[in-house]
Design a protein around this nucleic acid. Sequence first.
DNA 1: CGCCTCATTGACCTAGTTCAATTTGGGTGG
DNA 2: CCACCCAAATTGAACTAGGTCAATGAGGCG
Lengths: 240, 240
Amino acid sequence: MIIEKLLLKLRERYSLTEQEVELLTSSMTETAEFGSGGTIAPQYEKINFCSLLIDGFACRSKVTVDGDRQIMEISIPGDFVDLHSYPLEQLDHSVTAISDCRIVKLPHQRLSEVIDKSTRLARILWFSTMVDASIHREWLVNIGQRRAAQRAAHLLCEMLYRLRVVEMTDDDSYEFPLTQNDLASSLALTSVHVSRVLKELRGKDLVSFRNKRVIIPDQEKLERFAGFDPQFLYLEARHG
Amino acid sequence: MIIEKLLLKLRERYSLTEQEVELLTSSMTETAEFGSGGTIAPQYEKINFCSLLIDGFACRSKVTVDGDRQIMEISIPGDFVDLHSYPLEQLDHSVTAISDCRIVKLPHQRLSEVIDKSTRLARILWFSTMVDASIHREWLVNIGQRRAAQRAAHLLCEMLYRLRVVEMTDDDSYEFPLTQNDLASSLALTSVHVSRVLKELRGKDLVSFRNKRVIIPDQEKLERFAGFDPQFLYLEARHG
DNA sequence: CGCCTCATTGACCTAGTTCAATTTGGGTGG
DNA sequence: CCACCCAAATTGAACTAGGTCAATGAGGCG
């Protein structure tokens, strides 16, 4: 099923009825593909549909007047890359493909119908945009307060948790197609320093890398090093 | 009227009917006060009401395991400090009073009723939480990519725009009760460096300070210096 | 085979930190 | 009204995490 990974993510926290699943599924329209570097959602343009990422890695980013780029979130399969375009109508940033990506479209029109039909789904979707905001806040702490090595480690921990939910991890490893340049833009470091920092992490046996895969031999050790606490991801199941 | 500043903010972008205003107003319950430093909303505790700030300055912040504090947003009158506690149920950060604060409570229960009665208000409230997320993203760019002086200038520009909406500015100045320590936590700098940077801004006649007021003699000049673009605040009116 | 992007390494540089000592100024009690 | 107090701001000197610049290596692919 095309929205499989989305369901994995939502069901991590909420139970969904068949009707709710059907309502969501039937609201999706066509799919689209983007090559690495392609623009999935442009900055400051009116948008009338949301894109649900079903394959590949993407990111939100902004560029300053001086040409410096900051990545603000990594999107993975099961994530709406721009659900917030529904209330906002246009985005303050752009969303671009990191690896080759595939998305399905959910027109705002149809989203309105979903919300009219199910207040509960409305709240679940709202929730899901609020987790993005929580991730932004954690990144603020990460970039603002942690040193380079822990900062990188923290991001790797976050990706481990999020990818696990959508069943994109092995025991102790996951695919991770970001270049050191992408990491630099995510961590507010230079790519040169990212290289050094990853070397340090490798030296401490906290992580290793083999062709676009991150391997984490001792998760607890890495989390301790990074000062990582997964609560900000809101993965705990709740009653409703 | 108690929700006056909230209405100023919402009406900047949306027109509101009398019924909508009445629905909001009648959903508010008691008020509460907090002295400077008080906890308006605690981290990681179940919450069953939202707090609308009606007087004073507050902030969202988190502390790392090493005891470093990062402020993630400054809240001003008219802002819900924790509207996102409705979908999230508990907060990943705390909200504390910077100056003496007064809030009104909006119980989640009542908020549910508002949403049931008005899909439009639901979307407007969702929108308002998404602007917070947009502010987080801009802060990521600010902290991640800009040098200390522009970073500070950028924050002062943001506050000017936001305070103007709720009519808390003079021609070229506004009250701003943050200490240099608070600024340091907001900008991911040390307070020592904040002191030096503000001196630099003063020296360049970009801002001046007189008893807890920020004075901006030439707004355009300050914005140019900071590389500030107000679009991320979503202040433009929209159709609906 | 040769190109092109990505990663690595070394040498040097600097923005911002750290530490520590003053200074300033608003608030309070006598 | 003055003296005192305490938090906040300022300043200087020494230090360092991370940046900059530039050269080299290494893989993937047409």
